[in-house]
Measured scan of single mutants.
Amino acid sequence: YDEVAAQGEVVRKLKAEKSPKAKINEAVECLLSLKAQYKEKTGKEYIPGQPP
């Protein structure tokens, strides 16, 4: 859960800094992968601010 939240912060920071699109896309792919792992382990969708 904490990893997903941390990666979400990374994506937000990159977007706020107007980073190159390729770098943002890479961070988003990582975030989506973490969300998929979270769902696989818990059986639930990741919802920000609602730990399992």
Rank of each mutant, 00 (worst) to 15 (best):
Tyr1Gly: 00
Tyr1Asn: 04
Asp2Leu: 15
Asp2Gly: 08
Glu3Ile: 04
Val4Tyr: 02
Val4Thr: 00
Val4His: 00
Ala5Met: 07
Ala5Asn: 07
Ala5Val: 08
Ala5Leu: 11
Ala6Asn: 09
Ala6Gly: 05
Ala6Ile: 10
Gln7Glu: 03
Gln7Gly: 02
Gln7Arg: 00
Gln7His: 01
Gly8Ile: 12
Gly8Ser: 15
Gly8Leu: 15
Glu9Phe: 02
Glu9Val: 14
Val10Pro: 04
Val10Lys: 14
Val10His: 13
Val11Met: 00
Val11Arg: 02
Arg12Gln: 13
Arg12Asp: 04
Arg12Glu: 12
Arg12Tyr: 01
Arg12Val: 06
Lys13Trp: 01
Lys13Arg: 09
Leu14Lys: 08
Leu14Ser: 05
Lys15Val: 09
Ala16Gln: 13
Ala16Arg: 11
Glu17Ile: 10
Glu17Tyr: 03
Lys18Phe: 04
Lys18Gly: 12
Lys18Glu: 08
Ser19Tyr: 04
Pro20Gln: 06
Pro20Lys: 09
Lys21Ile: 11
Lys21Asp: 11
Ala22Val: 06
Lys23Gln: 14
Lys23Leu: 00
Ile24Glu: 08
Ile24Trp: 01
Ile24Ser: 06
Asn25Phe: 06
Asn25Gln: 10
Glu26Met: 08
Glu26Asn: 07
Ala27His: 01
Ala27Ile: 00
Val28Gln: 10
Val28Ser: 08
Val28Thr: 13
Val28Gly: 06
Glu29His: 10
Cys30Gly: 08
Cys30Ile: 09
Leu31Trp: 11
Leu32Cys: 14
Ser33Asp: 15
Ser33Pro: 03
Ser33Glu: 14
Leu34Ile: 03
Leu34Trp: 00
Lys35Tyr: 01
Lys35Gly: 02
Ala36Leu: 10
Ala36Arg: 13
Ala36Ile: 03
Gln37His: 05
Gln37Lys: 08
Gln37Asp: 13
Tyr38Leu: 02
Tyr38Pro: 05
Glu40Met: 08
Glu40Ser: 08
Glu40Thr: 07
Glu40Asn: 12
Lys41Pro: 01
Lys41Glu: 13
Lys41Ile: 12
Lys41Phe: 08
Thr42Ser: 11
Thr42Leu: 04
Gly43Ile: 04
Gly43Leu: 05
Lys44Cys: 00
Lys44Tyr: 04
Tyr46Lys: 02
Tyr46Pro: 03
Tyr46Met: 04
Tyr46Asn: 02
Ile47Val: 13
Ile47Asp: 09
Pro48Asp: 15
Pro48Phe: 04
Gly49His: 13
Gly49Phe: 10
Gly49Asp: 13
Gly49Cys: 10
Gln50Lys: 13
Gln50Ser: 12
Gln50Val: 12
Pro51Asp: 14
Pro52Ala: 07
